[in-house]
């Protein structure tokens, strides 16, 4: 006896031709228009109130223990300097990036990176920086600062970093 079954279904062929999307932001030092403005330079020739100024003269990052988002004394000191700098340049806004070392899963580390960024943001708010100048993003373990599978690299990668917008 013959049984006939008719099954119909779809197979689809996907042609990858996705639209473009914005690349990394261009440097923050781009020309800001033709108006006459004066620009301050710090003693080592870096433009004051810029990302470079923050990195070189203040410090842009803090570090964490494994699987922790607690701010140690060193991190708190660092953030006090950042808060003072933020008060000096009141038009500056920051994105706080949270990162992790490679010793965890993607999903857990994304959550942990967010907590680190948030811990930094909240501490800065506690020091008087207004919340509307601070946003956060977590990259989990996807963007290590230092490469290598060693404690030396991991300790540099468990971090939160202030990026001037």
């Amino acid at each position: 006896m013959l049984t006939r079954i008719l099954i119909s279904f779809f197979i689809m062929i996907f042609i990858a031709a996705c639209g473009s999307s914005p690349k990394e932001d261009a440097g923050a030092d781009g020309a800001g228009g033709s108006g006459l403005t004066s620009v301050d330079y710090t003693s080592d020739g870096v433009k004051a109130g810029t990302g470079d100024d923050l990195i070189i003269n203040v410090g842009d990052r803090i570090f964490f223990e494994f699987a922790s988002h607690e701010l140690n004394g060193e991190a708190q000191e660092q953030l006090q300097a950042q808060a003072a700098w933020m008060k000096q340049y009141s038009n500056v806004t920051l994105t706080v990036e949270g990162h992790c070392d490679e010793r965890g899963t993607r999903e857990y580390n994304i959550a942990l990176g967010e907590r680190r960024a948030q811990a930094m943001k909240n501490y800065l708010i506690g020091l008087g920086v207004t919340a509307d100048r601070l946003s956060t993003i977590s990259y989990g373990k996807e963007r290590p600062a230092v490469l290598g599978s060693s404690e030396a690299a991991w300790s540099q990668n468990r971090r939160a970093v202030a990026v001037v917008n």
Binding site: M1, L2, T3, R4, I5, L6, I7, S8, F9, F10, I11, M12, I13, F14, I15, A16, A17, C18, G19
Partner: peptide, 16 residues
């Protein structure tokens, strides 16, 4: 994006 759809009709016969 472009996609192609392919309708796949499948007839199945059980062989005794």
């Amino acid at each position: 994006m472009k996609n192609l759809f392919l309708l796949f009709f499948l007839t199945v016969v059980f062989l005794k």
